[in-house]
Nucleic acid binder design. Sequence first.
DNA 1: ATAGGTTTTGTCAAGCTTTTGTACAT
DNA 2: ATGTACAAAAGCTTGACAAAACCTAT
Lengths: 291, 291, 291
Amino acid sequence: MDAGTEQLRIGELSRRTGVSTELLRAWERRYGLLRPSRTDGGFRLYSPADERRVSLMRSHLQHGLSAAEAARLTLTEADGDGRPQDEPLLQRRAQELREALNDLDESAAQSALDSAFAEFAPETVLSNLVLPYLHELGERWASGDASVGQEHFASQLLRGRLLGLARGWDRGAGPRALLACAPGELHDLGLIAFGLALRARGWRITYLGQDTPLETLAETARSLGPEAIVISAASPDRFVRSGAELRRVASTANVWLAGPGASAALAKKANAAFLNVDPLAAADRVAATRA
Amino acid sequence: MDAGTEQLRIGELSRRTGVSTELLRAWERRYGLLRPSRTDGGFRLYSPADERRVSLMRSHLQHGLSAAEAARLTLTEADGDGRPQDEPLLQRRAQELREALNDLDESAAQSALDSAFAEFAPETVLSNLVLPYLHELGERWASGDASVGQEHFASQLLRGRLLGLARGWDRGAGPRALLACAPGELHDLGLIAFGLALRARGWRITYLGQDTPLETLAETARSLGPEAIVISAASPDRFVRSGAELRRVASTANVWLAGPGASAALAKKANAAFLNVDPLAAADRVAATRA
Amino acid sequence: MDAGTEQLRIGELSRRTGVSTELLRAWERRYGLLRPSRTDGGFRLYSPADERRVSLMRSHLQHGLSAAEAARLTLTEADGDGRPQDEPLLQRRAQELREALNDLDESAAQSALDSAFAEFAPETVLSNLVLPYLHELGERWASGDASVGQEHFASQLLRGRLLGLARGWDRGAGPRALLACAPGELHDLGLIAFGLALRARGWRITYLGQDTPLETLAETARSLGPEAIVISAASPDRFVRSGAELRRVASTANVWLAGPGASAALAKKANAAFLNVDPLAAADRVAATRA
DNA sequence: ATAGGTTTTGTCAAGCTTTTGTACAT
DNA sequence: ATGTACAAAAGCTTGACAAAACCTAT
């Protein structure tokens, strides 16, 4: 068990922390600050975690907080920081984001994202927070667990965030990719994430967004001459309905079908390439064609 | 309106301008130079505009004018002091933006917007660059002059921009507004601009975005209890199709119909209020209900 | 939600803000300036937001406003997120950043930067907020107007922010640049800004940081074979002292000298190219060599 | 410019309650 | 070790007050 952890008795804890034994007991009684185990005879045995809590408590008192407040803070900090200590920071941010979005709390969501983007690389945030949340939301929604309001709220907020990251993604001298959602398709977040990932690999992105008619796509492709065209859809019908036009576009350029709606069969039929679902891996594949 | 402007008492104005309090009162009495508001107790409260007038007055006196003359001049000058010089710059930014968007040149567009937001107040940029461009694009598109690619590209880019400005728009303590596009409706930029303007008037915004089912809206409204609900659509059918549900939502909350698709008749039928087209004026109207 | 926020009692708030407890209560009673929660026993508990309000109030009083006016302003500013709405955004953010950094207020500084980066392109933020602030700080410091603490605080915070943006800047397929500060040189913010700008132009960046021995630089260059090497220093001595070694490095690669310490003469002597001072313009020049 | 009256605002006091560290009896 | 007691420190409310700032009218 925890054979290796040192267990202090109250006198020793008092000596180490400079807090009188009476006070330690009072803190335990009044605020539940400490949770010592006991010897058979009833003596308190404090763990290192208890010792940390006492120092935290003292530091808060030093800063002028009232004892009640200091204890409250100490407990929430120690719990949210100490026990799931092994739980990575990333998990915590994910949890914060999830709660904020579910509560329709915009600024909390933004600040969770701010923290995450400050602490991790953009792709890490995408692959560990944003995309998993979208996935989860899709499933909860399919099973009737999420309100559609949450879905709308979340996707709008995340869209704004991702488009913010996208700013300037057409600059530079790399190969150019043209991105669009299939006709009728509104789910564009995965495609934007893909664009960001491809951008990080040095490509220039031109993004046409949701519900792009293939005629539009073809025209734009003619004027830009992109190295790759990526068309995304969340459901297969989007591709099915425009099979003929897809073939036509694909005959003049390097076209990929992506998103949950894409499949190897559909791609083959359209004479296009098939892009496996995960946007980040997809970026690797497309980038590899020009390495 | 000018909730955020500092109002000085006579002593501080005197200290700042170096004009005795008696004289300030005399100028007000004799020439109507100043028009301070009053506290409940009767103390004068001067606005920054008053402060400017006093400096102007002093400078005229310095140049040897009689007090009466100086006052007359000050009053006429202070009114005609605003924009005209800025106008060309604004036009230039508008032109830069237009060209960049038409060329699908993302970074040029972004930097035109950067310049504009650096040089002008947010609402000025909205009302002089963004909204006019959208309007123009709509017309060109209707007449077949704009490629759909341009429209897609521009609206996606502007959406990212506006959502960036929107960050934190749910914070604070003001009344809350719930915003959504009608079912099937994808044109959300006007609604976002409206949200930004309402935000600037102290409201908190919750935004559900494109194509929001009315059931979703109703549910979200129940949990948030917003002061106002604004539903936008670019074409009337969106509203027509969901007439019955609209009535139901409107029966429990303060609902406004907005966007080019709204009309007084439709609003009346739905038992909702009608919001005239311009997003900024609309924000004024909604804000006025709670002033 | 805000389980982790510290709540102050009135005495501590008084001590921190320098406002007597009686006055704090009077402000609450008369103007509703503060809205403390209460303990079960009825003691007031103030949030960090309350603390901010008190400082704002004090600052307004300092500027000569009457208490009633100061309170009104404080409330509208603090609740409505912010400030005069009719000012160009960029100026507002610059002012917020400046105040926050001068007050050593980290979270206010971060949120000013969050807003700025959401609203503007990274380069715009760099060239309009970050670099000017650094410049200004340098001058204030030279004239004894700024404390060393402020300088450390600001540069630490900004460095963290910029390095956050820099994440992943070595990815992709563009030409590679190797960046380093000259031996002994610790001012690296300008160089990082330069790196970011070059990254936006499609380059890959390898960054060696402060105080890089030229031997290290040469070795790294041998193994990476960069397209360009940029060495930065804030004062000329850094370059002077390592003249011979500089020549050697420059003989095998394309070397640029940058930063306020660089000059055409020094560069010529080292057989390197001279990079004009502004990091963003510098990025344009370097990028142009490979367009 | 002065006189005489009013408003605003910071401070103080009295009497009572809550909080919290320490002490003591079991 | 526990539980109770206690007293100093910190807070609360109500009410009042006086200096500073401001008003109008002469």
